[in-house]
Each structure stands twice: as C-alpha cells, then as structure tokens.
Computed example of a mutant assay.
Amino acid sequence: MFLNLDYYSIILMLLALSLGGFVKGVVSFGLPLVALPILSFVLNPKQAIFLLFFSVIAVNFRELKFKNFKAYKKIIPLSIGLFLGIIIGSVIFHKIENNFISQMIGFTIILCAIINYSDFKINSDLLLNIFFSITYGFFCGILGGMTTLVGPLIAIYLVSLNLKKDEFSELVSLTIFSCLIPIFGIFFIYQEIIFSDFLLSAAFAIPAIFMQLLGFKIREMLPQDTFKKVILLMLTIIGILVIYKNW
C-alpha cells in the first residue's frame, strides 16, 4: 500500500501525525481531523486512513480510564446510531472514487470547524429524545465511515450534555475507539494489506503518542477555547485547499 515514498512524503506524514497527536492531547479529539487533510497531499484517502490505524487506537486508548460508568448510559442511543451508520458509511467509502472522498473530507473539516468555532450546542430537549440521538448518531456514523472524521461530531453531542471535563475526554475517546472496530473491520475486507503496511502504520504512531503527551501538558496550562479556535481556523484553510486540490 505504501510504495515508493520519497523524503517529502515521509516528512509530511510525520508532521501530520505529530500535529494530530498534539491536538488530540489538548482538546481530546482531532487526530484524523488534523492529520487527514495534510496526508491527502501525499497519499490517497485509503492509504491515509490506514496510516492512522495504530495512531487512533493508541491515542484514544490512553484516555480510557473507565471512571465514569454512570455517564455511559447517556450515549447508548447515540452509539446505536453510530454503529449502524458507520457500517453503511464504510461500505460507501470503498465504493466511490478517491477524489470524491477527499472532497468529502475537505467539506467535513470545514463544517466541523465552523460548528465547533461557533460553540454550537444541541437543544437539551432533543438530547432527551432517543429517536433524535439515534438519528444524529446514524448521520455521524455515515459521515464518519466515509471520512473517519467522527470525533468532532461526537464532541458536539457530548459538549451539549454539559459533562465534566474528565467525563467528556473519556466518553469522546471511548466512542471513537468503539467506532474503529466497524471502520477497520470493513477496511480489511475490501483492501489488501501486507505486513510492511502494519509496520509503517505502527511506526508513525510513535510521534502521535509523544505529541499527545505534550498536548496533555498544554491542556493543563492553556485555555482550551483559545487553542481550539486557532486550530479550527487553520483547519478551515486546509479544508479549502484540500477541496481545491481534488476538484
């Protein structure tokens, strides 16, 4: 899957995983959101998503502490919708052209950036509606299956629940971690992966993990809102460039 990589590609791949891990450490989500648009300049979407395989497992697993079992019941309807939607979205991902996937990634990045930048929250009455939660999860799942950018949409839902900071971080990671099973399960059905591909994906998880540790320290010192808005502005610009490149 990863043949004839030049130095430019390797440097950009390291940059993408490092920045993605750092942002994940600071705001609890964002590794694919940051890494995918950068990777799209040197890899096709299927290569880029598999390169993230070990990284997204590692950085989300690190934040699973299982301290907040009582909060888990709040996301059961969301999780049901997510699981169903991701199966459909993942199948669609393998049936459509790479350029269209890249365009979808670009549009999704811009949409997520605008929504998160505006601090949009879902009405509390809707959050109590099981049908809405399942439907919202289903929509997020389809989009997440096609792009792996499910984290920001999950974050919008969890922020609207007004969770404590540690509950929010844990539930974001738990939900994303659970999404990886259908995403990569279907990926392995459709794509031929060799042992060297796994080694490369594992090697690129190292900078993501180290930069996540740095992000944890920044999370304690820097106002997250300030950092998040700077990142989201940067992502909007990158998203526009990704769409332009693949139009």
Score class of each variant (00 low, 15 high):
residue 205 A to H: 04
residue 120 F to A: 13
residue 10 I to H: 10
residue 39 L to S: 08
residue 131 F to H: 15
residue 239 G to C: 05
residue 132 F to N: 13
residue 77 P to F: 08
residue 52 L to M: 11
residue 209 I to Q: 00
residue 243 I to L: 14
residue 76 I to L: 15
residue 190 Y to N: 07
residue 47 Q to G: 07
residue 202 A to L: 15
residue 65 K to G: 08
residue 225 D to L: 14
residue 29 F to I: 01
residue 2 F to K: 06
residue 81 G to Y: 01
residue 190 Y to D: 01
residue 178 S to H: 00
residue 29 F to M: 01
residue 127 L to P: 09
residue 101 I to Y: 04
residue 162 N to D: 03
residue 94 H to E: 11
residue 175 T to K: 01
residue 247 W to C: 03
residue 232 L to I: 06
residue 131 F to S: 15
residue 149 L to V: 10
residue 32 P to S: 13
residue 147 T to E: 10
residue 179 C to P: 06
residue 230 V to T: 08
residue 49 I to C: 08
residue 90 S to M: 09
residue 193 I to G: 02
residue 42 V to F: 07
residue 134 I to N: 02
residue 236 T to H: 13
residue 29 F to C: 00
residue 142 I to E: 05
residue 79 S to M: 12
residue 3 L to Q: 15
residue 209 I to V: 04
residue 89 G to S: 00
residue 3 L to P: 08
residue 62 R to G: 05
residue 67 K to N: 10
residue 66 F to K: 02
residue 94 H to Y: 10
residue 18 S to I: 02
residue 14 L to N: 07
residue 160 S to K: 11
residue 74 K to A: 08
residue 90 S to P: 12
residue 211 M to D: 07
residue 156 I to T: 04
residue 182 P to T: 06
residue 41 F to H: 06
residue 234 M to A: 14
residue 148 T to W: 00
residue 204 F to E: 08
residue 211 M to K: 07
residue 70 K to Q: 10
residue 107 F to C: 05
residue 197 D to Y: 09
residue 29 F to R: 01
residue 1 M to G: 06
residue 243 I to P: 03
residue 240 I to N: 04
residue 127 L to F: 05
residue 127 L to H: 02
residue 23 V to C: 11
residue 150 V to G: 06
residue 55 S to L: 06
residue 224 Q to T: 11
residue 155 A to M: 12
residue 34 V to H: 07
residue 210 F to S: 07
residue 127 L to R: 03
residue 71 A to C: 05
residue 8 Y to M: 14
residue 237 I to S: 01
residue 28 S to A: 13
residue 189 I to M: 10
residue 234 M to I: 13
residue 33 L to P: 04
residue 194 I to Q: 11
residue 24 K to M: 05
residue 110 I to F: 14
residue 194 I to S: 14
residue 27 V to W: 08
residue 91 V to A: 06
residue 121 K to N: 09
residue 172 V to K: 01
residue 89 G to R: 09
residue 30 G to P: 02
residue 103 Q to W: 12
residue 101 I to T: 07
residue 245 K to E: 12
residue 3 L to V: 15
residue 68 N to E: 04
residue 206 I to F: 06
residue 77 P to I: 06
residue 157 Y to P: 00
residue 235 L to A: 04
residue 13 M to L: 14
residue 24 K to I: 02
residue 58 A to T: 05
residue 119 D to C: 14
residue 120 F to C: 11
residue 195 F to M: 14
residue 80 I to T: 11
residue 38 I to H: 06
residue 203 A to P: 03
residue 160 S to M: 12
residue 23 V to I: 12
residue 65 K to C: 05
residue 240 I to R: 09
residue 190 Y to Q: 00
residue 98 N to Q: 12
residue 142 I to P: 03
